[in-house]
Design a protein around this nucleic acid. Structure first.
Lengths: 275, 275
DNA sequence: GATTATTTCTCATACAATGAAAAATATTGC
DNA sequence: GCAATATTTTTCATTGTATGAGAAATAATC
């Protein structure tokens, strides 16, 4: 949740109520009113008011004594995303089919671009024993590392890339995406031309990532479909074959979105990204 | 989301920002600033401010043109619940094992009591073809209907039951849980004694629900474990056998919680419920 | 690169959030 | 079941910040 906190700090307005939500982390998933009050620097009275409102909205829920944890609205809204996100809807079946055809020990990921962050929104674990991938559903992925993110990055509008480069030049250089703007630009153009991105052990040691971009009807990038497989099983031929499968999967998702019972979410158009 | 809306209306304070979140429903999963402004009766300027804050917290995220949908923080926080809720952690394995032993066409549900609502937080679908259960993960369940809810209800503190009865007498009568307070009380006592609740087609026609209560270390009710199976496969003997399995599963969950790597969420004690 | 759509900024006003202490309500211990 | 304690809500005067209209800036579209 590091990024969320960082953003909150930047937010001009003193909206401390939403800051309460950001207190809930894996390290500390429950908070008392008192502890939260101290942490956000507000009186107990006001914190009681915040907790009451958040509880009313179902975002948090009381448990044990004076403690609160995240509440039912979170689960409810997550369901909404699962049901209504057209990309996720379309991808579900494609991913299940793809994983059957992939190597043993493979995992399929669907990642989505949210504004200027990438997150896994669906994951299918294939047959065969395997360690979990480190960026499971619900963890923000680094924007500049891993096949998944890189292939998305490669298809962001130039405007966006420029501002990203300005803000994250150091990270970009470190990730080996180019030493300067022109270099970066050329590296991404190469990825675009390839139609997919293959990385070796960038996020998880001993595993290969193969990612293909997923576009909306206006050809704007929505996210990516990735196949993660153990490096042990992969020679060049295998990689080439799975790359083709992944790209085909991405195209299938796009087709399913275009046809699909688009009853719920109409037409996702261009994605807005960091300025 | 009906209940959430209802609560919001009751809330004394004019916290219209959280009301924005409640606009996002299955029927309408994306909103423009303009539409939301009109709906909640606030100027466009203020609505832009709300949207900006919610976006900053990751609760919503811009897509297509002027539209917004639920954002990455929802998925993040849902992961937090999945990882940190001790009951859910403990139940995962138990449920997977239980579903193997259950009849074909069975589904296992883990439901949690949140304050005064019950919601499915984990679901495992067994082998064999079967229609989905109507209360999948993330949908609030009716408090007075279905085995899942009834067995939870039966173990709420008397105080709580009294206030629930006062507020929902009509519903309780309609659900056949008793015509008056004493009747209601006795019906619940019977359920408690039975140690489980079995219902026939109360939520889904043609299906039987078997639910066992799950308690925390202080013996306060946390939620329930349910087995849903097709009525076609169930005679009395089968039901008795699966009831035993379900109860055993609930006990196993409790044991796992007690032992379990309780690193994250310490000791969930007494559940606070509606006054 | 020009036009249009979307978002942010500015600023005066009013309304609502805030904190301390008291009152009410739950929870716990006996 | 009742007393003691912990937790939550209310009250009320004060300050502060949210609010809306329009202008300015920025981003999207052609």
């Amino acid at each position: 949740m590091a990024i969320m906190v960082e953003r909150a700090r930047r937010d001009s307005s003193g909206d401390r109520m939403l800051a309460v939500l950001e207190l809930f982390t894996v390290e500390r998933p429950q908070w008392t009113v008192e502890a939260a009050a101290e942490r956000i620097g507000v009186s107990a009275t006001t914190t009681y008011r915040y907790f009451k409102r958040l509880t009313g909205a179902g975002l948090i829920s009381p448990i044990a004594g004076a403690s609160y944890a995240l509440g039912p609205a979170i689960v409810q809204m997550d369901r909404l995303i699962q049901i209504c996100d057209p990309m996720l809807r379309a991808a579900r079946l494609v991913m299940t089919e793809l994983v059957q055809r992939a190597a043993e020990g493979s995992t399929i990921l669907l990642c989505r671009l949210f504004h200027d962050r990438v997150m896994c929104v669906h994951l299918v674990v294939g047959r065969g024993p395997q360690p979990p991938v480190s960026y499971e559903r619900g963890r923000l992925m680094p924007l500049f590392r891993g096949a998944t993110s890189k292939i998305i990055l490669a298809h962001l509008p130039t405007r966006t890339l420029k501002s990203l480069f300005a803000r994250h030049a150091a990270e970009i250089v470190e990730a080996g995406l180019g030493a300067g703007w022109e270099d970066f630009r050329r590296a991404l153009a190469r990825l675009r031309r390839a139609g997919a991105c293959v990385t070796h052990g960038e996020l998880d040691a001993g595993r290969i990532g193969i990612a293909a971009p997923v576009f909306d009807r206006e050809r704007a990038i929505l996210g990516s479909l990735s196949l993660v497989l153990p490096a042990a099983r992969a020679d060049e031929g295998v990689i080439a074959r799975f790359q083709a499968l992944t790209v085909a999967g991405a195209r299938e998702i796009e087709r399913a979105m275009a046809n699909g019972s688009v009853s719920h979410q109409p037409s996702p158009a261009r994605m807005k990204v960091a300025r």
